[in-house]
Amino acid sequence: MTPQNEIILDRRASVARILADRGDALLITGLGSTTWDAAAVGDHPNNFYLWGAMGGAAVLGLGVALAQPQRRVLVITGDGEMLMGLGGLATIAVQRPGNLSIVVIDNESYGETGMQKTHTHHGVDLAGCAAAAGFPVSRTIYSRDELEDIVSLLYAATGPVFAVVKVAATAAPTVLPSRDGPYLKDRFRSAVLGDRATG
């Protein structure tokens, strides 16, 4: 490992920094740690948390992005969740939604099941996968300066944008948002659609 690739970023601080600039962006989180990360920053009606559907977060974000082309849609998920849905990167790249950004909080581990190493620990380059699929912007983030640079791209660049944020494999307190599917769905639709949500 070269010095510039030393993993120093903290997952909670990184997610908090990213969401500080969210504005009216819509947020989808992958099951497990990234759902707790978003909840730790603060619950929000524009958040839809996945508690299952592993491998589906990025493509679920695509569905939202195509339906809401005027809104920025942000997916924050983990490396294990993204690895389960790698084919989705190809599907997203083909649709090329300009308003979709995907952030992988990569601790190189399955955090909910005993910190077993994921494929990224063994060298699989998720940002390389996204770039090869055709994402116009794809980065791997190791430093606070790189994180600052990518935050503006996440909300303003013509996407799809893909960013892997390498974070330390340290435990953070579990912060649980609602896990009731119908409530989370209806709340999100009301926030996005207003009166149209019940139509």
Binding site: V59, L60, L62, V64, A67, G85, T91, R189, V192
Partner: peptide
């Protein structure tokens, strides 16, 4: 997953 997202976004 795509169609779940579509519904969340109003389509």
């Amino acid at each position: 997953a795509l169609l779940a997202g579509a519904w969340l976004g109003g389509e």
